[in-house]
Design a protein around this nucleic acid. Structure first.
Length: 188
DNA sequence: CAGTGGATGCTCT
DNA sequence: GAGCATCCACTGT
């Protein structure tokens, strides 16, 4: 199963299948341990209501990056999934840091390795992903995607930080990783 | 530990 | 002008 095959499928198949892949930007990054799925029919999704403004990348080909600014401060990164034109994407919420730890510590200004990539805003800061990467093809440099070296135990919960469609269990995480932004058991 | 509020910019399902 | 797919510093137990 190549990365292109994974992201070409339905976002609901692609999201859990992406857990365990390693994402690197210029050789810096880690193992994907937490994602959320968004699609066009989903009121919580930026693609809800069709292609307009910032969301046009979500309706493009799969395997590209969709980057947006969150709360005026942070960048958040998504991988476009599904057949082109479907407006679905997977939000990257947490990585387990494996490559270029010193670079990530410097960018994040912290020595707390547990929080280096635990959260969508932290992750983009650690990898140096910004608006300039919006629409980039993840098959091209400086990006690299490496397949899982061991199978992950994938857990499923409701999504974090949204106010619409909060009942959908479209958040997927590695149940055994300590690098996730919030544990599977912590429920409101 | 938990809970609260400020920072900050883009979109307007 | 309001609301937001967030994070951090601060407060009070």
């Amino acid at each position: 199963m190549t990365f292109a095959d994974v992201v070409a499928g339905s976002v609901h198949d692609a999201a859990p299948a992406l857990i365990g892949w390693t994402l690197l930007v210029d050789g810096v990054g880690g193992r994907i341990v937490e994602v959320e799925a968004y699609e066009e029919s989903d009121p919580a999704s930026h693609s809800f209501g069709g292609p307009r403004g910032r969301n046009v990348v979500m309706f493009g080909p799969p395997g590209h990056l969709y980057v947006y600014r969150s709360y005026g401060i942070h960048w958040c990164a998504n991988i476009v999934c599904g057949p082109a034109g479907h407006g679905s994407a997977v939000l990257l919420r947490a990585l387990e840091p494996t490559h270029g730890l010193d670079t990530m510590r410097a960018r994040r200004g912290t020595t707390q390795d547990r929080l280096l990539c635990a959260g969508p805003g932290r992750l983009t800061q650690a990898l140096g992903i910004t608006n300039a990467d919006n629409g980039a093809d993840l098959r091209d440099a400086p990006f690299e995607l490496l397949p899982p070296d061991h199978p992950a135990t994938v857990a499923r919960t409701t999504r974090i930080g949204i106010t619409k469609a909060t009942e959908k269990e479209w958040r997927y995480l590695d149940a055994e990783s300590a690098a996730v932004s919030r544990r599977a058991v912590s429920r409101a």
